[in-house]
Structure formats: C-alpha cells, structure tokens
C-alpha cells in the first residue's frame, strides 16, 4: 500500500501562465502569426516582382548565363557601373565632411537640439522629386543662383550649373545628409561625458581630446552613416536623371532605359548587379565592429 504523495509547490501546474515559455513550438509561432499579414503583402507586391525581374536575367529569351557573361565586355555597362560607384563614393564622402560638424553640434546642444533636429528632418520629410525640382530652380540657366550672380555683376553670362556631375552630387548630398547626421550624432551622444573630461585631466588639449577620444569613439556611427548613404546613393534615379549631366548615366537610369525598350533580360541582369553591390556593402559593413549596433539605434 503506497502512501499518497503530496504535490510539492514547485510541481508543474502549480505556477501557471506566469512566464511565457519561448521554447515551446506553439508560443514561438506567435510573432510569425502577428507579422503574417505584412509578410504576405510583402511577398506578393515586393518579393515576387523582384524575383521575377531577377529571373528574367537568366531565362530571357532562354535559360542561360549569357547576359552576365556579356557584361564584362559591355563598354556601356562598365562606364555606367564606374559612374554609379564614383558618384556614390563622392556623395558618401561629401556627406561625412558636411554631416560630422552638424552631428557634433547636435550632440552637444541641449535646449536647441529639437530645433536643430527639426531643421535636419524637415527636408527629409519632403519628397525627393520636390527637392530635385527645387535644385533645378536654384541651379538652372535662369535659376536663382545665376540670376543673383548676374545681378551682382560677378559673371557676364549664366554658368552651366544644372545638368552637370557636380549638380547631381550636390543634390544627392543634400537629400542624403540626414542619413549621415543621425547615426553620427547618435554615436557621439552615446560617448560617456566623463571620457573627454578624463582626457583633459590627463593633459590632452581640446583638439587632442577630439582626435584621440571623441573621433575614434564616434567611428561606428560614421561607418553606419557611410554604409546607409552609399547603399542609398547606389540606387538613386530621380535626382541624377533630373539635375545630372546627360553623359552621367547611373545604373538605375540604365535599368529604366532598358525596361522602356523592353530589354527585360538585360534590365534584370543590371538589377542583379545593383542588388549584389548593395548587399556586398551591407556585408562589409557588418564586419566593422559596432556598425550593426549603430544602425540599430539610429532612430532612438
């Protein structure tokens, strides 16, 4: 005859529904279920067209790698590829140089910080199309800048500002600047204020403190900003098409051109190259310590 055993307080069933057991297969499915409407939407309107477009590079007109093989000897493609890469690099470095001082000011500001942020974000919320038109108004042959220079008597004839490589770069830097400022400012804000103090106390001048402490510690933010700006610049279409030089054709412009001429296979191949380039940059970015973290906290 056995003695009845009392259930100890720690036995299963005693504390129920206190902690969600995330190892349970059912509970693990909950986040996916919550995200499923969006996932279905993205699959239908985004992933499927992208895959279809990329497939064209392989099966148009018949299954082969001919499109990719042809790229290496394609003079137009190579020129466009290097222009795209060069423009993106120039814009990225232009953004770093212009954004860093602003980010520094933003991270130091106390009462004026919301105002500075507003000034940075206001154009950010304006359509790229509108901003590109604005640059056309500013840079045009009879635009604001030329008219002003003429009125001041500094020039006799209007300068050719619009439809130049420089115009593309200026407009793209303007549009992409917030993507550089915010991660850098965020990285600067996260630097413990006692670190610059420690450096001063140890004999570093304000410039020495910046060079040896603040700048190195802001590098994850700089790298994150460069990554964002570079990848976004790779795919720019409207701005270079509107304000750029007619000889400066970027990859996305070439893709659009080919689609218009119904060269789907070639367009798909170019798209694959552009995508691979962007993914490669993101991959490289992940290797730099602190970058993924800086990207994650950008919006804070």
């Amino acid at each position: 005859m056995s003695v009845p055993i009392m259930t100890p307080p720690s036995a299963p069933g005693y504390k129920r529904n206190v902690v969600i057991d995330w190892n349970n297969a059912r509970t693990r499915a909950i986040p996916w279920l919550l995200a499923s409407p969006l996932l279905v939407y993205m699959a239908v309107v985004y992933a499927m067209p992208v895959v279809a477009m990329l497939l064209r590079s392989l099966n148009d007109p018949s299954w082969s790698l001919d499109h990719y093989a042809a790229l290496a000897g394609d003079a137009v493609f190579l020129k466009v590829f290097w222009i795209t890469l060069g423009t993106s690099l120039a814009v990225t470095f232009g953004c770093v140089v212009l954004a860093y001082p602003v980010a520094l000011a933003l991270s130091r500001a106390r009462s004026t910080a919301p105002l500075i942020l507003m000034v940075i974000l206001l154009p950010f919320w304006t359509s790229v199309l509108v901003r590109s038109y604005a640059w056309m108004v500013l840079l045009g042959r009879h635009g604001v800048i030329n008219e002003a220079l003429l009125a001041l008597g500094l020039i006799d004839q209007p300068l050719k500002l619009l439809n130049t490589t420089m115009a593309t770069q200026i407009a793209m830097i303007h549009i992409l600047l917030p993507y550089m400022i915010l991660p850098i400012a965020n990285a600067l804000r996260q630097i413990d204020p006692s670190l610059p103090r420690a450096a001063w106390g140890l004999g570093a001048t304000p410039w020495g403190t910046f060079r040896q402490v603040i700048f190195p510690l802001s590098m994850p933010g700089v790298a994150a900003g460069m990554l964002l700006v570079f990848v976004l610049a790779l795919g720019f279409y409207i701005t270079p098409a509107m304000v750029g030089s007619s000889s400066d054709i970027t990859l996305s412009m070439l893709i659009a051109q080919e689609v218009e001429q119904l060269n789907w296979g070639y367009a798909g191949t170019l798209s694959a190259v552009l995508l691979a380039l962007a993914l490669a940059m993101i991959g490289i970015g992940q290797l730099v310590p602190g970058v993924s973290n800086a990207l994650r906290t950008t919006k804070s």
């Binding site: 413990d192 006692s194 670190l195 103090r197 420690a198 450096a199 402490v213 510690l217």
Partner: peptide, 8 residues
Amino acid sequence: FQNYALFP
C-alpha cells in the same frame, strides 16, 4: 572618476 572613465 566614479565610473573610472577608461577609454573603451
């Protein structure tokens, strides 16, 4: 310093 403020 209170939190040592070592340069990370």
